[in-house]
Design a protein around this nucleic acid. Sequence first.
RNA 1: GCGCCCAUAGCUCAAAGGAUAGAGUGUUGGCCUGCGAAGCCGAAGAUCCAGGUUCGAUUCCUGGUGGGCGCACCA
Length: 543
Amino acid sequence: MIVERVKKDASEKVRAWALEKGIAEPPIPTYSACPAHVPADLSVPWPMPAAKILKRKPLEIAGELAAVLQSVPGIEKAEPAPPGFVNLRLSQGALVDNLKTAVAAPAGYGAGHAAKKRKVLIEYVSANPTGPLHLASGRAATLGDSLIRIFSRLGHTMWAEYYVNDAGGRAEKLGLSLKARYEGKDVPEDGYHGDYLKDVAAALPAEAASWTPEQFGRHAMKVLLETHKRDMAGFGVTFDRWYLESELYASKAVEKTLEFLRGRGMVYDKEGAVWLGTQAVEGADDDKDRVLVKSTGTPTYFLPDIAYHKDKFDRGFTELIDIWGADHHGYVPRMKAAIAAMGKEPWQFHAIVHQLVHLFRGTEAVKMSKRAGSFVSLKEVIDEVGRDACRFFFALRTANSHMNFDLELAKKQSSENPVFYVQYVHARICSIFREAEKTLGGAFDLAKADGSLLTAPEERALLVKLAWFPATLETCETELSPHPLGGYLMELAGLYHPFYEKCRVLEPKDPATTLARLALCAGVRDVIAQGLDLLGVSAPDKM
RNA sequence: GCGCCCAUAGCUCAAAGGAUAGAGUGUUGGCCUGCGAAGCCGAAGAUCCAGGUUCGAUUCCUGGUGGGCGCACCA
């Protein structure tokens, strides 16, 4: 964790220096990797904001600060650079120590160093069981599952949940559609027209002939929910719990929640309905109040959803993260308001809204609609493109990117997917170790490697990149997104290949260099395996 | 009409207000008689428009333009 340690030590020195110069509240230093043309590893732009406060030239400040930071352990050189950076170069010794800790305990590298442990429940996908999962669910699943894995590794307590809307009026509508399929009649105009109900109908038991539409609906939901579970498992995504909306009714949580909110004075009656005063909640920005119980006496979708979120808190989770598609972004203000109405703080609820996936076949847009039955299922894409390629494809993008997914291109380019670029490095290194076992007879101990031999620019670049892995995981945490990790793995892989071309690993005439390079390879191999695993992507030994 | 999101290389995407804007893919010129050519080295190629804030703007603000999504006593 050399990068973290240097940041911490340097920040203390910067702060002490600033206080000494009379800056009462010094800006907190930031750090970034240096651009390619700068022969250093960490860049500190702090002198520039400080220049304004001190009314001095930034480069002068950088010069003085460089002298101070020179003494930070692990720093080989601290240099000022125009217009006002201090560039830090890590020492070979520190980089090698870092490699050794990474190789000694790969599963612990970058793990559990988060200062504040969090207890988070992430709810994601939560697609209605009225049809197969479509491709967009793959985006939410990748996001949620990767975040769970990354947060867990950072030492947080995580719980994954999938909310199933199995109550409400949809079961009957679905049932009528299934019944029509079963009886060979036309599906109702506002029913579900997808072919998948034909398959469900074909597998119905004999006694279905006497079923009510409601029974048809329950059956369809049960079958479709099973397909969701199968698809998620096939995508490498597991949930700690599949929470049924109907459970909330069965446990009276819905009614209790209404009474709870009423007791908090957030609820009022108007025009025969029961309302939540969401507009009054500061910071939620809802533009109208919301109905909890319709004038017909039945709850809206909103009330059980509030009950569900209350239940999450009641089970001991301090933070809730919901992952929603952009088609639900309008729902964010009212849920924020509901969280506040429960008496929770704003930081305890966060909605990650990801933009929708727009599907194309070539240049032709594919309209996604379960009712119309024209959509591309997640399973279809996984079958065609592969789980690894599909997950990595989603993992490289921010939630806010409006992505276009060209099915034909995805299929055609599946063998050129960036994921293989990363996996190839892993397979290549595994191959080197197989070769090493043969030629060296397995008689090598990586712990005895002399890292001071790793001085080639390609070797040093890898050492530095490995040092950034823990910081990358932290970036994923602060940005609530796995995509920095995906990008990191691409960059790490991009540094390995040139190393491989330039530096021969197995050199019988030079056992010391061989051992050092094997240790470096092991570090890269392990970080790639760990990183890919955090994204739910496999790291094959052979390809 | 109101609100949220987006606009970066031919294409798909990156880039805490920082230095010469990065990758992959595609185009193009080279490289396999030693560890995997699913690779390497080189070339060409980009911030929608107009203002503003700042020492510094792809990033922040205002206004355009173009697109996605949402504005229920549906879920």
